[in-house]
Design a protein around this nucleic acid. Structure first.
Lengths: 230, 230
DNA sequence: TCACGTTTCAAACTCATGTTCGATTGAGTG
DNA sequence: CACTCAATCGAACATGAGTTTGAAACGTGA
């Protein structure tokens, strides 16, 4: 009866809307992107978003889920690669390599827009979680999180599993927010007067990985230290 | 001529708007808080926001600047206290104590709303910086950032100053995003099955400080490690 | 008491946005 | 060819938002 049962088979309007919306959401954010902007840039009719997706909210959900799934799949493959290679060598996996697989979708070459989009999604979920964001997190992010925590424990057995859960979340926080730093990049130049090379993308990535690895392998004793009150 | 030259002397409407807006911005965010919500909660007239502040944007600027200034002043005092106390003892300041002064306004007891508001401001500045946010960052945050970087170098002289700039920014990123974690706190419980005590606020703070200190003292050699591609 | 500037108030205005509607198109099908 | 139904299109609709307006209320100094 119907001409197309699977929306994914439509290589036209639906796909065009998704791609355009993804780019615009990454650039301007969800709230600051109107359906009119999307449909105009995608060269489709204004009503087509509501026709194909039902609402702007549903469109956003589809855009985010697609991006999250893409990132998660890449991470899963890369992480498995690191673990397999370590197993072959009969050694423990390198923490730096594990962390790098996590960082790559955010700060890897050419992943600028994708990283910003992911960051926007995470921040949206953190600051005003919805049914949709919770579902995406639970479906795509949480399972892989468990894998990462296990990998961390494999690479660094002296840290208790409890603590590793914390450190995974802290790593994720650091990476996400660092991915947004490009937009106020001048700040880095400001704080480190003149040294322009410091704000290279590769330098960002290296410093981030070092920092995160240091945080993960930190000794567990000692925490919040009260300081003198006047 | 005029009855009140200084808006700060008005302990009525202006102050009420600022306080109410601050609370609502922290709770729902800037975009999801309408002037009507603010004026209704503050029990003032709808038009009073535009009368006293000119626009919603100006109100937001005033709210954020007041909060940032408050946080910055507290940090400046606490940091100075830590450094002075170390100088008295003739020892290097403790990194943990320094980091704690930074974390306190976000995750200290009773600072929940303030921490969320600060986080929202930083994220706003990161994702869509404006003249106003840049001015506030430059005026209030950047000078203190230099002090923190210097303090880090004092506590940890083996790390080059360049690297410390990175690590300050990374610390700030981690702290900011961790301050937003309460809203999706169930995630921590989910990832660490059952162990409810792990999501205590004090535990969050301790784990955060350990992680950040570990990142700051991490050795500088080694960075992004390429991983096997299929 | 009167005049004057400031503040408050209710109401209206302007505008952008998400959404819906009815008509039209166009490819597939008997 | 006629029929069908998903897809597209232009236009209108409804609403929530920030802002503006002009009058009223208020306090203060001459």
């Amino acid at each position: 009866m119907s001409l197309k049962r699977d929306p994914d088979s439509d290589r036209g309007t639906v796909r065009r809307i998704l791609d355009t919306a993804e780019a615009l959401f990454a650039e301007h954010g969800l709230q600051d992107t109107s359906i009119r902007q999307i449909t105009q840039a995608a060269e489709v009719n204004l009503a087509s978003v509501n026709y194909h997706f039902g609402s702007k909210e549903n469109l956003a959900e589809a855009v985010f889920e697609r991006a999250v799934a893409r990132v998660t799949e890449k991470r899963r493959r890369d992480l498995a690669g690191v673990l397999a290679e370590a197993r072959e060598r009969g050694e423990r996996p390198e923490l730096t390599a594990i962390v790098s697989t996590f960082v790559e979708p955010y700060l890897g070459d050419g992943n600028d827009a994708q990283g910003t989009l992911m960051a926007r999604f995470i921040l949206l979920h953190r600051l005003s979680p919805s049914e949709a964001t919770q579902r995406i997190v639970k479906t795509h992010l949480n399972p892989l999180a468990a894998d990462y925590i296990a990998a961390f424990s494999l690479a660094c057995p002296e840290i208790p599993a409890n603590e590793m859960t914390w450190r995974y979340l802290l790593m994720a926080s650091t990476v996400v927010l660092t991915a947004t730093e490009d937009r106020s990049r001048d700040r880095i130049a400001t704080l480190s007067r003149g040294k322009r090379s410091i704000s290279d993308r590769a330098a960002t990535r290296d410093a981030l990985v070092r920092f995160v690895v240091g945080g993960i392998v930190a000794p567990v004793q000692g925490g919040f230290r009260p300081f003198p009150e006047p």
